[in-house]
C-alpha cells in the first residue's frame, strides 16, 4: 500500500489545511518582504507568526493524509522550502533590482 487515503471524516480538514498551507506560505513571504521594505519590527513578528501557523498546517495536513516513511520528506520539503523561499526571493528581488549605473532603456533597444 503506497498511500492510505484520507478518512471520510477528515475531508474538510484536508482541503482546509491544504489551502491554508499555500495561503500562509504566501502571507509569510509577503510579510517578510514588507517588513524588509518598511523595516517595521511588528511585521517581522507577524511574519514569524504566520510561519509558525504554516508549520502547524503542514503537520495537520501530513497527519490527515497519512504521510509515513518517504511521504514525510514532502512535509519536510514544504516546511523548509516555504521557510527559505521568501529569503531567496527577497535576495533575488533586491539583487536583480539593485542598480546604480543604468542609462535610460528602451525596450527592444539593446540586449546584453
Amino acid at each position: 500500500m503506497l498511500i492510505e487515503p484520507v478518512a471520510l471524516s477528515d475531508f474538510f480538514l484536508s482541503f482546509f489545511s491544504a489551502a491554508l498551507i499555500i495561503l500562509l506560505a504566501t502571507l509569510y513571504a509577503a510579510l517578510f518582504a514588507w517588513s524588509k521594505v518598511s523595516g517595521r519590527k511588528i511585521l517581522t513578528i507577524l511574519a514569524w507568526l504566520s510561519y509558525a501557523a504554516l508549520l502547524v498546517c503542514i503537520g495537520v495536513f501530513s497527519y490527515i493524509n497519512h504521510f509515513n516513511d518517504y511521504w514525510l520528506v514532502l512535509s519536510l520539503l514544504m516546511a523548509l522550502g516555504y521557510g527559505w523561499m521568501p529569503r531567496l526571493i527577497w535576495g533575488l528581488c533586491a539583487a536583480t533590482h539593485d542598480e546604480t549605473t543604468h542609462q535610460t532603456h528602451q525596450s527592444g533597444g539593446h540586449h546584453d
Partner: peptide
C-alpha cells in the same frame, strides 16, 4: 555591461 549582482542572482 558589468553587473554587481551575485552569481546566483545573475
Amino acid at each position: 555591461m558589468t553587473e554587481q549582482v551575485p552569481r546566483w542572482a545573475s
